[in-house]
């Protein structure tokens, strides 16, 4: 168990020694990281690296076996409802209430978040217009495409203007215009009011373009963390791309050439 870090109310998110197990399998091992005000923190890792497990622990879906998670200084276990009020979340998979339409779903989310009806409606209209959603708002979610579902989840995440956004592969399934729009939106959004964003992705370009600091997860362990220059200095290669840094830190570059050769044979 890690010693408790001092309370830092101004920090959007602090993870301290978080460990997550699924039965015998350890998904995340003593992970500590901090999302600072005004920062988009990128969590980078290959499939199964522990990104989604970390994010699920932050938003209260998974209970860590050890460690603590604080959102704006508040322990998630001490006041789960209060913490959830401050978080906007986009899950990795767009599994929603298939039997509702997006408008009905957003009504439910806004009602649970006790938003004012006029404000919530105005925000919904603004985001729906930005994402070019029209009649889809009245069609059952079961019939919508992956990209449209993702847009609905993004609207639900922004609807209450949370101070911490937790986004798990939020650009999945989106068209290029919407990807651009979300990137711009996040950049402007995080600049206000001491907000923070935890952003999980396995796309290097997105992380490099969008995130101020990046944490590289590999098999549940944080292998490196920092800004791009800091990470470059970590591998002593000043012009390295994020992909090169990632492959070096996770040692996934080892044997890559041999693997490629083996695929050429058959």
């Amino acid at each position: 168990m890690h010693p408790a870090a001092p309370a830092t109310p101004e920090l959007p998110l602090v993870l301290d020694g978080v460990t997550i197990d699924y039965g015998e399998r350890r998904a995340v091992d003593r992970l500590s990281l901090t999302v600072r005000p005004g920062e988009i923190y990128g969590l980078l890792g290959s499939n199964g690296a522990g990104k989604s497990s970390t994010i699920k622990a932050v938003v209260g879906i998974v209970r860590p076996r050890a460690g603590s998670i604080r959102v704006f200084g508040e322990e998630t276990t001490a006041n789960p409802i209060g913490v959830k009020e401050r978080i906007g979340y986009v899950p990795e998979t767009s599994l929603l209430y298939e039997g509702l339409t997006p408008r009905e779903f957003l009504e439910f989310v806004a009602g649970v978040r006790r938003l004012d009806g006029a404000t919530a409606a105005a925000r919904m209209r603004a985001y729906a217009s930005a994402f070019r959603l029209g009649s889809e708002l009245e069609e059952p979610i079961a019939t919508l495409s992956l990209g449209t579902r993702q847009k609905i989840l993004l609207i639900a995440a922004f609807l209450h203007q949370p101070r911490l956004l937790v986004l798990d592969e939020p650009l999945n399934g989106l068209d290029p215009r919407t990807v651009r729009l979300v990137k711009e939106l996040l950049g402007r959004y995080v600049a206000q009011d001491g907000r923070g964003v935890l952003f999980s992705t396995h796309t290097m370009e997105v992380a490099q373009e969008l995130c101020r600091r990046i944490g590289i997860l590999d098999r549940g362990v944080l292998q490196g963390e920092g800004t791009l220059p800091e990470l470059r200095s970590r591998i002593a290669q000043g012009d390295a791309t994020l992909e090169e840094i990632y492959l070096r830190l996770t040692r996934e570059d080892e044997g890559l050439a041999e693997t490629l050769r083996s695929l050429e044979g058959p």
């Binding site: 509702l100 009504e107 006790r114 919904m124 209209r125 029209g134 009649s135």
Partner: peptide, 20 residues
Amino acid sequence: PPEPVGTLDLQRPALAVLTK
């Protein structure tokens, strides 16, 4: 035909659960 973007009819959490 497509329909115009609707308004939101919000309720308190317990009633929101009931309506859902």
